[in-house]
Computed example of a mutant assay.
Amino acid sequence: MHRSELMLDLSAVRRNAELLAKELSGAELWAVVKANAYGHGALAVSRTAMEAGASALCVATLNEGLALRQEIPRARIIVMGPISPNEIRAARDGKLECVAHTGEMARFLGDQVDYHLKINTGLNRWGIENPDLIPRGRAVGVMSQFATDGDPEITYRQLSVFLDVAKRVPGATRHIANSCAAWLFPETHLDAVRSGCTLVGFPPSPDADFGIQPTLRWTSYLAQTRRVAQGESLGYEGAYRVPKNSVMGIVPVGYADGFNAKLGGTRILVGDKSAQVVAVFMDAMSIILDEPAPVGSQVTLIGEGVSLDEHAKIAGIEPWELSAGIIDDPRRTLRNVTN
Rank of each mutant, 00 (worst) to 15 (best):
R3S: 01
S4L: 11
M7N: 15
L10K: 13
L10M: 13
N16S: 11
N16F: 01
A17L: 10
L20S: 11
K22P: 12
E28D: 13
E28Y: 04
L29V: 06
A31N: 08
A31R: 08
A35Y: 11
A35W: 10
G39R: 03
L43Q: 04
A49D: 09
E51A: 12
A54M: 00
S55V: 09
A56N: 03
A56D: 02
V59Q: 04
L62T: 06
A67H: 05
A67W: 02
L68Q: 01
Q70K: 15
I72G: 00
R74I: 01
A75V: 03
V79R: 01
E87T: 07
I88Y: 07
A90D: 06
L96A: 01
L96T: 05
C98M: 14
H101R: 14
H101D: 11
G103A: 14
E104Q: 14
M105P: 06
D114W: 14
K118F: 15
T121D: 03
T121P: 02
G122C: 11
R125W: 08
W126S: 14
I128Y: 13
E129Q: 14
N130M: 12
L133P: 10
L133M: 15
G137R: 12
A139Q: 02
G141A: 06
G141P: 05
V142D: 02
S144H: 04
A147S: 15
T148H: 07
G150P: 06
D151T: 04
I154W: 11
L159W: 07
S160Q: 13
S160I: 08
F162I: 04
V169Q: 12
R174S: 12
I176Q: 08
C180E: 13
A182Q: 06
P186G: 07
L190F: 01
D191A: 09
A192P: 11
G196F: 06
G196S: 06
C197K: 15
L199C: 13
V200H: 00
V200Y: 10
G201K: 00
P204Q: 01
P206V: 06
Q213E: 14
Q213C: 09
Q213F: 09
W218K: 10
W218A: 05
S220D: 09
L222Q: 00
Q224W: 06
Q224K: 09
V228W: 00
G231M: 12
G231N: 05
E232D: 04
L234R: 10
L234V: 15
L234M: 13
G238D: 11
G238V: 11
A239S: 15
R241K: 15
R241D: 10
V242Q: 08
N245A: 09
I250H: 02
D257L: 00
F259G: 01
G265V: 09
G271I: 00
S274N: 05
V277H: 01
A279G: 13
M282N: 14
S286R: 09
I288F: 00
A293H: 00
G303D: 00
G305T: 02
A312H: 12
I314C: 11
A315C: 03
A315Y: 06
A315G: 07
I317D: 06
E321Y: 04
R332S: 06
L334G: 02
N339P: 10
